[in-house]
Design a protein around this nucleic acid. Structure first.
Length: 607
DNA sequence: CCCCCCCC
C-alpha cells in the first residue's frame, strides 16, 4: 500500500545520495532553542527497515509542523536534503537536514507504523565521505582543514584546481556560533556599497553581502581592513567558497534574510570563487507579497513585491529634518495582477539612475511598508534589493498580464500622496459646475482641476502673523517693534510670516478665484513665507517679480468648495488644499486612470 | 564594530 524507500536512511547517513526517498514520520520533537532564534524540529523518520532521529527540518519549513502537515504516520517524499554534522558532546554526529518535503499521505489517513523498523546504529561518523552531488553536502572535522588549505589558499586564477573535488561544505541553514571550521558554498545575491560610520563607539567602514545556498540565506559583513580586502573580490551573482567567519545573532530589525544569525568576516576568513557546478545554488529568492495585500500590512514590515512600473516621478531633493542631510528621492508606481497599485520610494543613487521608461518590471526584496495620508506606501531601505526586469517566471507571467488590456481599470490605489487625492474627482471647471448643479458634488467636497494661474493678487500675499501656533492671526504693526494680536488681545515682540495666495486659475472651460495658504502657497510660489516676507521688506521689485513668476504656472489643484455669507451675500469660496506641479517631465502618478481626461484638456487648451 | 531608512 505505502512504498517506503527501504534502507534509505542508512545509505543517506553513509553519504550515499538517495534521490527523493519516501519515508514515514513517526514523531517529532522541538529542540530547545535559545532566545531570539527560531525553533528547530527534529523528526523521527522510518524507511520501513530503519528508524532515525538524527534528522532535522530546516527552519523555514517549521510551518509544516505548526500547521500539522507532518503529524505521526505521515508518509512523505524528501525532495531535497543535505547531510551535515554537528558536534554532539565532543562526538561528531551526522544529521540529515531536510530542505524540502512533500506530503504523500497525511498521518491520519495512514494511521499506523509501516513495517517494523529498528534503530540505525550511528557509528562510523568520522570517516570521510565523498559526494559527487553537492546537494548532499557533508562536513567532517578530520577532512576540513586539509580541504580548506587546498582550496582556499589559492588565488582566483587557479580555481579549477578543486572544481571536480568533493569539497566538504555545509549548508548555510545549519551555520551557528557553535560550528567552527566550516566552509559554505554560496551565491552572493546582494552587495552593499562601502559605508562609513562614526558614532560614540568609534568610526569605521563596512560592506555587507547576502549569501544564499540550497538550504537558506545569511548576511555577511566585512569591517575596516576586511572591507578593503574583500570588497573588490566579490561580484553579485557569483558563487564563492567561504570559510571561517564569526557568527552572531542577527538583528531581525534590519534584514529580511531568513536566518537567526549573521556572519562577520575575520582575519582568518577565506573567500574563493567557485565557477563550476553552481547550478544547484539558487539565485536571489523572493517571497512576493501581492500588492493588494500590502494594504493590510503593518507599518515597518519588510516585504518583497513584484510589479510593473506604470509611472515614475522626477527625482526630488529633500532635506532630512533631523540631520539636515540632503536626500535624493524618486517615487515610482508599481502595479501587479492583484489589481492594486502602490507608490515606492527609491533613494540616493538608485533614485538618480532609475530609468522607468517602457514599463519595466521590478522585483524588490525587503521594502519597508509606510503609511502616509491614510494610505500605504513602500520605501527601499539599506538592505533592500531592487532587480529590474528579473528573468524569473513570475516576472514573465506579470509581463503577459500587463500586455493584455484593462489592467488599469478598477485599480485600487493604496498610496496617498500629499499632492493629489486619488479619491477626489478630476473635473474641468465646467464639469464641476455641472456636478454641483446636478447634486453630484457637495459644497464641502474636494475636487481636482488641471489649471493655469492667470494672476496672483499681490496685496496681502505675505503677512506678519501671530507667533502663537494656534492663532496665526494677522498682527497689527505698531511700528515700534511691537506687534498687536487682536485675537489674543496681546502684544508680541516677534511674528511669523504667513502666506495667502489669492489667485485666478483657469482651464479651457472657465476660471475661478481660489485661495492657497502657507505650505500650499509656498509650493505654488516656490518660495518660503519667511523668504518672501524678507523680500517684501527689503526690495519691493524683487518681491513683485517673485510673485509674477507664478503667473502661467500650471498645477493640478486640489480644491475645496465652500459657501459662506459675506456682506449679506452668499458666496462660494474655493480653497486650494494642495497642488502638484504640472510640467512636461512630471509623470502624473495620481492620475493614471484619468490621463485621457488630462490629455483632452491639454488639447482644448492648445486650440 | 553597522543600519533603525530619511520627505511630503
Amino acid at each position: 500500500m505505502y512504498n517506503l524507500t527501504k534502507g534509505a536512511l542508512d545509505e543517506i547517513m553513509n553519504g550515499v545520495d538517495i534521490k527523493k526517498p519516501v519515508l514515514q514520520i513517526l514523531g517529532y520533537k522541538k529542540i530547545p532553542s535559545s532566545i531570539n532564534t527560531d525553533d528547530r524540529y527534529r523528526l523521527l523518520l522510518s524507511d520501513g527497515d530503519r528508524l532515525n532521529s538524527f534528522t532535522m527540518l530546516v527552519t523555514h519549513l517549521n510551518h509544516l509542523i505548526t500547521n500539522n502537515s507532518l503529524t505521526q504516520y505521515t508518509v512523505c517524499k524528501i525532495l531535497n536534503y543535505a547531510l551535515t554534522s554537528v558536534n554532539n558532546n565532543g562526538k561528531e554526529r551526522r544529521i540529515m537536514l531536510i530542505l524540502d518535503i512533500e506530503v504523500l499521505f497525511p498521518g491520519n489517513e495512514v494511521g499506523y507504523k509501516i513495517g517494523n523498523p529498528t534503530n540505525t546504529d550511528n557509528k562510523s561518523r568520522l570517516e570521510y565521505v565523498t559526494t559527487s552531488n553537492t546537494s548532499t553536502a557533508t562536513s567532517c572535522q578530520t577532512s576540513n582543514s586539509t580541504i580548506e588549505k587546498n582550496i582556499l589558499n589559492h588565488d582566483t586564477s587557479s580555481t579549477s584546481f578543486y572544481i571536480n573535488h568533493s569539497i566538504s561544505t555545509i549548508p548555510i541553514a545549519i551555520l551557528s556560533p557553535y560550528q567552527n571550521r566550516w566552509i559554505i558554498k554560496a551565491r552572493v545575491t546582494n552587495k552593499s556599497a562601502i559605508k562609513t560610520w562614526s558614532n560614540s563607539r568609534g568610526e569605521g567602514k563596512l560592506f555587507s553581502m547576502d549569501l544564499i545556498d540550497e538550504s537558506g540565506e545569511i548576511r555577511c559583513v566585512a569591517f575596516n581592513q576586511q572591507c578593503d580586502n574583500f570588497y573588490h573580490l566579490i561580484d553579485v551573482g557569483n558563487v564563492y567558497y567561504i570559510s571561517r567567519c564569526k557568527l552572531k545573532t542577527a538583528n531581525k530589525q534590519f534584514s529580511t534574510l531568513k536566518n537567526d544569525y549573521e556572519m562577520t568576516i575575520t582575519d582568518d576568513t577565506m573567500i574563493s570563487p567557485c565557477h563550476k557546478n553552481c547550478d544547484n545554488i539558487p539565485m536571489q529568492q523572493f517571497d512576493f507579497c501581492p500588492i493588494s495585500q500590502v494594504e493590510s500590512k503593518e507599518q515597518n514590515n519588510l516585504i518583497d513585491v513584484l510589479g510593473v512600473v506604470t509611472t515614475f516621478n522626477d527625482i526630488q531633493h529633500i532635506t532630512q529634518r533631523t540631520t539636515g542631510k540632503e536626500l535624493i528621492k524618486r517615487d515610482i508606481n508599481l502595479i501587479d495582477d492583484s489589481g492594486a497599485m502602490i507608490c515606492v520610494a527609491l533613494w540616493g543613487k538608485e533614485a538618480e539612475d532609475f530609468d522607468g521608461f517602457n514599463n519595466p518590471i521590478l522585483a524588490i526584496k525587503g521594502a519597508r511598508v509606510g503609511e502616509f495620508n491614510g494610505g500605504k506606501n513602500l520605501s527601499l531601505i539599506n538592505s533592500s534589493v531592487l532587480k529590474k526586469d528579473p528573468d524569473i517566471p513570475e516576472a514573465h507571467k506579470l509581463r503577459k498580464w500587463y500586455a493584455a488590456a484593462n489592467h488599469l481599470e478598477n485599480v485600487k490605489f493604496l498610496s496617498r500622496s500629499s499632492g493629489g487625492d486619488f479619491n477626489t474627482p478630476l473635473y474641468t471647471f465646467r464639469e464641476m459646475t455641472e456636478a454641483q448643479l446636478g447634486g453630484k458634488l457637495n459644497f464641502t467636497d474636494l475636487y481636482k482641476v488641471v489649471a493655469t494661474i492667470n494672476l496672483i493678487r499681490v496685496e496681502n500675499s505675505v503677512y506678519k502673523a501671530c507667533p502663537i501656533d494656534s492663532c496665526r492671526k494677522k498682527l497689527i504693526d505698531q511700528s515700534t517693534g511691537i506687534f498687536r494680536c487682536e485675537k489674543c488681545n496681546k502684544d508680541y515682540p516677534n511674528f511669523v510670516y504667513r502666506l495667502l495666495a489669492n489667485m485666478n486659475i483657469a482651464d479651457a472651460t472657465g476660471n475661478r478665484w481660489v485661495i492657497a495658504f502657507n505650505e500650499v502657497a509656498e509650493k505654488i510660489l516656490g518660495i518660503s513665507a519667511q523668504e518672501l516676507g524678507e523680500l517684501k521688506e527689503n526690495d519691493n521689485d524683487d518681491y513683485m517679480e517673485k510673485l509674477n513668476e507664478a503667473n502661467f504656472k500650471r498645477f493640478i489643484f486640489s480644491l475645496r468648495v465652500k459657501s459662506e455669507v459675506f456682506q449679506d451675500e452668499m458666496r462660494i469660496k474655493h480653497t486650494c488644499t494642495s497642488v502638484v506641479p504640472l510640467n512636461y517631465k512630471t509623470h502624473l502618478t495620481y492620475l493614471i486612470d484619468e490621463v485621457s481626461k488630462v490629455v483632452h484638456i491639454e488639447k482644448l487648451e492648445s486650440n
